[in-house]
Design a protein around this nucleic acid. Sequence first.
DNA 1: CAGTTTAGTTAGCCAAGCTAACTATTGGGC
DNA 2: GCCCAATAGTTAGCTTGGCTAACTAAACTG
Lengths: 170, 170
Amino acid sequence: MPPRRQAPSRSARASTDPRDDAAVALADRLHSAAIHLLRRLRTEDDASGLTAPRLSALSVIIFRGPLTLGELAAAEQVKPPTISRLVQELEREGLVRRVGDSGDRRIQRVIATAAGSRLLREGRRRRVAALAASLRALGPADRRSLENAVAILQRVVREPERPEGAGRVG
Amino acid sequence: MPPRRQAPSRSARASTDPRDDAAVALADRLHSAAIHLLRRLRTEDDASGLTAPRLSALSVIIFRGPLTLGELAAAEQVKPPTISRLVQELEREGLVRRVGDSGDRRIQRVIATAAGSRLLREGRRRRVAALAASLRALGPADRRSLENAVAILQRVVREPERPEGAGRVG
DNA sequence: CAGTTTAGTTAGCCAAGCTAACTATTGGGC
DNA sequence: GCCCAATAGTTAGCTTGGCTAACTAAACTG
């Protein structure tokens, strides 16, 4: 967790706009759902011996090909030291490997080993197995709805950060 | 993060069922979306000086009335020492208060102070403000879709193999 | 070639999770 | 009435994963 930061002095948007309340309430519930979803997964997790951030990083490394540490940090939305250590640990476990860039020797690219790929498939599948079981119990409409929501979220989350809540009003 | 645990020897469902693959893929993407959503929030967060777990615990305390530490731990899906420390910290910041049970002196109930309630409202609103701004930019259909998905998730996450109510944050 | 910028690492801090082992209380059985 | 097991929380100590600050090394630029 990050240590407390200075209040960013976000210029207060008028909270009297009724659309604000609806959006805030939705954001709130998404937040809550995400927290509890992850806790649920955590309690089920770990047959693979990989924690969530490692699994996540390994997944990105595998599916997005060789990445520099900086790119990986950006993809994972963490700072360089964090990704540096994560990769060191993945490397120590033999799941990824670094390859230097011949052109620019500052750069290190990370790729998954065969063991890493294997472990991701198995571990990640196990990690979400219990959740998947619950999802199987849902009707097709609910599942489509979740699929749809995930797609929306992917867009929303990836969105560049707006300084000072200049939330592009639609 | 939890230390590695023994594999839970979950009785393997046949992974050859095609529905399994779809459910696992969806679970996977939900997992990923939750991780990135929370990371996004974390980067925006903290105008209140409260971290996510504290905000979450405070929220449960406020909305579910006086709770024993054990109940709170169950609601937050964490172990007793974790909740014990969280409450100590919330107490130190003057956001909650303990009241002893007159009948059973082992028990301590936790309630929010006025400062806690106030801070929750403000802090939580700020925490999700950036996300809310993004959500406001979505069309009504997308927002309805997310609303719907959150409702489904709340059921799914709460449902399984655990008697005690899984807490929701807000 | 000097200075700046960029990529990553090292050091050191803090939060949040865990288990193990403890205290204190309750309640039951003899 | 006591002893003993069960229950509620706490304390101690570990691990992981975030962060910032300060560093090294390499590459660019004037």
